[in-house]
């Protein structure tokens, strides 16, 4: 995408906040004292679930690196606190957005790894996302920020005084620009 404007604050901010929320919860799940362990684990799972729903809302396929990385990190964090990992409800497959069944397959393909190991591909993926986001123009970043907040295409068009088809085009370009898959 050709554009003079380099930084897209709202979009970058939206994704940064989402990821920090998830990673913050993971840290808490890993460090929480025994008494509040279950509560923390529940919060972490809920945050991850929310994160996935929001990713889905942007109409972008859930990245096949992100999901197993998060799953493994949660398992690892729970194991650190002494919780039985088999008791931990794995991030429920049925309640999560799935694209072409890829996420479920990838979960089976990725046995539990150490938390750090699991987060490495996540970090690499984040780097690629940030690079891609920096090439998005200001208008597109406004569109994606509203999308992350849950607005429909029509509502985004009304709020930004754009046309419905223009919003759809911008989101379509975004899908092509951001590397949402592991190997792409």
């Amino acid at each position: 995408m050709v554009c003079d404007k380099t930084l897209s604050d709202p979009a970058e901010e939206a994704i940064r906040v989402l990821l920090e929320e998830v990673l913050g919860c993971l840290r808490i799940a890993g460090q929480a004292p025994l008494g509040s362990r279950l509560d923390s684990r529940g919060t972490a799972l809920s945050a991850i679930s929310r994160f996935r729903l929001r990713v889905d809302r942007v109409c972008l396929p859930a990245p096949d690196v992100l999901l197993p990385a998060l799953d493994a990190a949660v398992e690892e964090a729970l194991a650190d606190t002494g919780a039985k990992t088999d008791r931990a409800p794995p991030i429920l497959d049925s309640e999560l957005p799935r694209q072409n069944g890829r996420a479920q397959e990838s979960r089976l393909d990725h046995p539990a790894r150490s938390g750090e190991e699991a987060l490495l591909p996540l970090a690499a993926w984040l780097d690629r996302v940030y690079e891609a986001i920096q090439s998005i123009d200001a208008r597109a970043s406004e569109v994606v920020a509203l999308r992350v907040e849950g607005f429909t295409d029509r509502e985004i068009a009304e709020r930004l005084e754009l046309g419905l088809r223009l919003v759809k085009r911008i989101l379509c370009d975004l899908r092509a620009a951001v590397p949402w898959g592991a190997g792409r």
């Binding site: 050709v2 554009c3 003079d4 123009d137 208008r139 223009l166 911008i170």
Partner: peptide, 16 residues
Amino acid sequence: EVGRYAAWEAALLRVG
């Protein structure tokens, strides 16, 4: 403004 859809956006703005 340089942008892929600037002319499209400007047309919408001008009608309004």
